[in-house]
């Protein structure tokens, strides 16, 4: 029963992340909202799989997948946001500060 609750919470977090991907104004904000919410949502689903199976082949695989997913998602987010800035996408007109512009030149 606890497994089903944890999996439902994970799907709810995924829903927030995808709404953020659709609604926010520019690519930096979209990346930020989507990475946070979807990564924690999928980690939560995998934790639910562990709670459902206990310590067995499937449960241990789910536990191993959690740190793997975590590090790969955050490092991919750093690489994507840096590549996006060097590609030359402007920040949205609601942004108020940009210290990185001087450092790149």
């Amino acid at each position: 029963m606890a497994a089903i609750i944890v999996i439902s919470i994970g799907v709810l977090f995924n829903l927030f992340g995808c709404i953020g991907l659709l609604r926010l104004p520019d690519v930096y904000n979209r990346l930020q909202a989507a990475t946070k919410c979807v990564t924690l949502g999928c980690c939560s689903i995998l934790l639910g799989v562990f709670l459902h199976n206990g310590i067995s082949a499937a449960g241990i695989k789910a536990i191993i997948a959690i740190p793997l997913l975590f590090f790969s998602a955050t490092v991919a987010a750093h690489a994507l946001v840096r590549g996006t800035y060097h590609f030359g996408v402007k920040m949205s007109d609601r942004s108020i500060k940009d210290d990185y512009k001087d450092a790149v030149k």
Partner: peptide, 15 residues
């Protein structure tokens, strides 16, 4: 921030 109708964001890059 995502579900609020006016989206209270004030983005920028800081050092």
């Amino acid at each position: 921030r995502v579900l609020h109708p006016r989206m209270p964001i004030k983005p920028g890059i800081v050092k």
